[in-house]
C-alpha cells in the first residue's frame, strides 16, 4: 500500500518482505535523502534504528542498510543503498537524525566510506590509538598478514582448517572427495 505510493515517486527495487513487520527494498543513492525524509515526516518512521554497511566485493559495491522504525505500526523498513566501492561516498544524514553521525564515523573508520560534512568524521572510535592500514573491515584487507607484521607471533603455533580437522577426527576413513561432494551439495537443493 504505502510501498505502492512510494513507488510512484521513487525508484524502489528489490522489495522483499522479510517478516510481517520488516520489509527491505533498494533505492538509488541520489534518492536516499528524499526517501528518508518522506518516510520520517509523512509516514511516521521516526526512528532510525541503525545503519550498517556490507562490503559486497563481488559486486564492487558497499551495501548500506538504513533501518527505519515506526512506533505506531511496529513496522520497520530496511532501505538498501548500493554505493560504488571504488568511489565510496555517501550523503551524510546527520541533519535528519543527530545520532547518525556516530554510525557514519564507524562506517568511515571500518569501511572507508566518506560522508561529506558529517561531524567529527575523522575521529576514530575503536582505532583511536592510531591506525595506518587500510580500513580493517574491507574484505580485501588481510588481517592475518597485518597481524603478522604488527604483533609478535609466538613460534610453534599450528593452524588447522576446522572442517578438515573435524573430518579427520571424526571420520578418518571416509574418502575426502566423497565428503567434499556431500558437504558442498548439502547446502543446495
Amino acid at each position: 500500500m504505502m510501498l505502492e505510493k512510494l513507488k510512484q515517486t521513487f525508484t524502489v527495487t528489490e522489495v522483499k518482505e522479510q517478516k510481517k513487520n520488516l520489509t527491505f527494498f533498494t533505492v538509488p543513492k541520489e534518492q536516499m535523502e528524499m526517501m528518508l525524509i518522506t518516510l520520517r515526516d509523512h509516514h511516521d518512521y521516526k526512528h532510525l534504528s541503525f545503519i550498517v554497511g556490507i562490503d559486497m566485493i563481488e559486486d564492487g559495491v558497499f551495501k548500506l542498510t538504513y533501518m527505519l522504525y515506526n512506533y505506531e505500526t511496529n513496522h520497520s523498513f530496511g532501505i538498501h543503498c548500493n554505493i560504488d566501492r571504488e568511489k565510496a561516498e555517501m550523503d551524510s544524514f546527520h541533519h535528519l537524525w543527530e545520532q547518525v553521525g556516530t554510525y557514519q564515523r564507524e562506517l568511515r573508520e571500518m569501511l572507508g566510506i566518506n560522508f561529506e560534512g558529517s561531524p567529527r568524521l575523522e575521529e576514530n572510535l575503536s582505532l583511536d590509538e592510531g591506525w595506518d592500514g587500510p580500513p580493517p573491515m574491507r574484505r580485501d584487507f588481510d588481517t592475518k598478514e597485518y597481524s603478522n607484521n604488527t604483533y609478535f607471533q609466538r613460534e610453534g603455533r599450528v593452524n588447522y582448517d576446522p572442517r578438515e580437522y573435524m573430518r579427520e577426527q571424526l571420520y578418518p576413513t571416509f574418502p575426502k572427495t566423497e565428503s567434499d561432494k556431500l558437504l558442498n551439495g548439502g547446502g543446495k537443493k
Binding site: S126, L127, G133, P136, F141, T143, K144, Y146, S147, N148, T150, Y151, F152, Q153, R154, R157
Partner: peptide
Amino acid sequence: INGGMYWDSYNTINR
C-alpha cells in the same frame, strides 16, 4: 600468551 583465538586479529596483541 599467543593471541589465542584472536591470533590473526588486526587489533589484538599476541604476546
